[in-house]
Write a protein that binds this DNA or RNA. Structure first.
Length: 220
DNA sequence: CACCAGGCAAGTA
DNA sequence: TACTTGCATGGT
């Protein structure tokens, strides 16, 4: 079976098993971006605590955060871990947004997707996954997001090498799938859902895995 | 106690 | 270029 059909079949199986995931869990595009940075190698639950702290301090906005001292920001996002590093990264993005788009995400959204991707990657603290998450979930661009779960799930099911690089794995999806924001949004969210429940780093709960296969391989 | 979570950059050879 | 290490809280 060619890759295009397999990838669509995986998506259908996941969608039937879990249904729509409603990503990204946030009230605004700005909040999506903060979450994308805060969730780097960090459980979403801890990110929620940090976001809640920012909301309770009435500080979850471009204007408030651009004025906030870095030390103060670090204290508020403490539950998300790596708080000194992440406070700096959040500030880096905010400064970028101020300098290039006057703090206006709508203005940023008008730019070409690949131009935006290069700009985001030039910010210290924003790598490929964070950049693509921002493009897809905050700016509604049709960009496929790859993460540790994506790599783990597809390598364990014998689809790709386990150390396949980000761009290669991403191209696999973008070549095979129709370039639809809605599809990319749901597909990535479903892979994360599957990963959380069945494909943690050390454990692999098969054959309960919705993708099937007692040996951890795709049964398609 | 050990291990992990929706990464990334900096240091080393 | 190709590894390795630091960053840090909270759940299992």
């Amino acid at each position: 079976m060619i890759e295009k059909q397999r990838l669509l079949k995986v998506y259908e199986k996941l969608y039937r098993a879990f249904g729509p995931q409603g990503w990204w869990p946030a009230d605004t595009a700005f909040e999506v971006i903060l979450g994308a940075i805060l969730t780097q190698s960090t459980s979403w639950q801890n990110v929620e605590r940090a976001i809640t702290n920012l909301k309770n301090a009435n500080s979850l906005s471009f204007k408030k955060l651009s004025k906030m001292k870095m030390h103060r920001l670090a204290q508020l996002i403490k539950p998300a871990g790596y708080y000194n590093v992440k406070a700096k990264r959040l500030k880096n993005f905010i400064l970028f947004l101020k300098k290039n788009y006057s703090g206006d995400l709508n203005r940023m959204k008008k730019k070409d997707t690949l131009v935006l991707r290069r700009q985001l990657l030039s910010i210290c603290g924003i790598g490929p996954e964070t950049a693509d998450s921002i493009l897809l979930y905050a700016l509604q661009k049709p960009v496929f997001v790859v993460d540790a779960y994506t790599r783990r799930i597809f390598s364990r099911h014998g689809f790709v090498e386990k150390d396949v690089d980000y761009e290669t794995l991403q191209r696999l999806f973008t070549r095979a799938l129709p370039s639809q924001n809605r599809l990319f949004n749901e597909y990535h969210a479903l892979l994360v859902r599957l990963g959380k429940e069945f494909c943690k780093k050390t454990k692999m709960k098969c054959p309960a895995c919705p993708l099937g296969g007692a040996m951890g391989r795709l049964s398609l």
